[in-house]
Amino acid sequence: MVPVLAQDDLEEDLASVNAQLDQVASSIEAAEGERSTLATAVVATRDRVDLLLGSVAQVTAELGTARQAVRDQAIRIAVVQETLVRLRHDLATTRAELKDTEADAEAWARQLYMTGGSDQALVVLATNDLNELGIGMAYLSVVSRETDRTLLDLEALRRQEQRQIGAAANQQQILEQEQALLVEEEARVSGLLAEQIANQRAAEVELANERSLLTTVEEEIAHFEGELAALEVEQDRVRDAIRAEAAKAATAGTEQPEVASSGWVRPVPGAVTSGFGPRLHPILGYYRMHTGWDMSAGTGTPIASATAGTVILAGWFGGYGNTVVVDHGGGLTTLYAHQSSLAVSYGAAVGAGDVVGYAGSTGLSTGPHLHFEVRVNGNPVDPAGYL
């Protein structure tokens, strides 16, 4: 609760609160600008991460295709290599058979010569030109009837196998060249994938950092907004206190206390509604001594000390309600009853016209007013002698 201070102090407090409000509002504005920037950055980075994820998936698929192509090409090369091995083996077998057949033919020719065989057959079997063998096939068949193949068939088979080996070797060379290109493409795609993954991870780290900063800024904004709300409450309280002080000052300014010829100050400006002496009590309903004045005063009207003195009572006093009693010395005291609130405490020194409290209707009272008494050595006397 804002304490009751002098007007100048309250104005200073209000200026301080306003300055703090401006500062916090500026901090909120700056933080909101930073939040907007970070939110935009988060969206952009998240979109970039999504694009990189798509790119990584695409490149991963391309790499899988490239690797499968390399594997398929390796299988094709392996098949061609197996064919080459088989063809070379067959060619070696054919060459061995051809050599054995040629050796057998020469042996048979020598045997035929030694046994007196035909000179013509010897000439045919002794020739080194296989193309000429066809001329003497009829005769040669007599000599080589036990041979599985003719020399002509073996030569044709050898040439065919050589052609097949050449074709297979050429195919292997082409496949190996293609495989080299595929391996190169696989390496390129693999490098691209590594680069894309690195970019994706970097973007994810950046996104996490931006989100962390955004969270921090949002927490700062929430903190500032809490400070702002508290300062606005404080601002309202100070303003209420200023208005209250202003109202009191206005009341004091328009209702200056009257000063009697004795030098005493009239406690409130209102008229005396019930004087000193016996009267019919308005609440108790019987006649009794009225030991003071009842003076007209609305709730909250400032009550002035009639003259200088020391407060010897400030608090609840039975049927008087909230009461202040001031000792003026020489056995003279004044009493101010039924107050709504007190402005002084026990032992306080007051001067003539100082506010000791505010009018009300506490205690045994029918409505807001001031009950004022003057006593000499404890005995009530008519205030008219002093006012």
Rank of each mutant, 00 (worst) to 15 (best):
L14G: 04
V17H: 01
G33A: 05
G33S: 05
A39W: 05
T45D: 12
R46S: 13
L52P: 09
G54N: 13
T60A: 10
T65H: 09
T65W: 08
R71M: 12
D72Y: 05
A74D: 09
L84A: 00
R86Y: 06
L91G: 04
T94G: 02
R95E: 06
E102T: 04
E102H: 03
D104K: 09
E106L: 15
E106S: 13
L112G: 09
G116N: 03
G117T: 08
S118C: 00
S118D: 03
A121L: 14
A121G: 11
V123W: 04
M137P: 00
S141L: 07
S141V: 07
T147E: 15
E155D: 15
A156S: 13
Q164A: 14
A169C: 11
A169D: 15
Q171C: 06
A180H: 07
V183K: 02
Q200E: 14
A203N: 14
R211Y: 12
S212D: 11
L214W: 04
H223K: 05
A230M: 08
A230E: 14
Q235A: 08
A244K: 02
A249P: 05
A249M: 10
A252S: 12
G253C: 04
W264A: 08
G270C: 06
F276A: 13
R279N: 14
L280S: 08
L284E: 14
G298Y: 09
G300H: 01
G300E: 01
T301N: 01
P302F: 07
L313R: 01
N322A: 04
V324L: 01
V325M: 04
G331H: 00
L332F: 02
T334G: 01
Y336R: 08
V344N: 05
A359S: 13
G360F: 14
S361I: 10
H369K: 06
E373D: 08
V374Y: 00
N379K: 15
N379D: 15
A384W: 11
Y386Q: 09
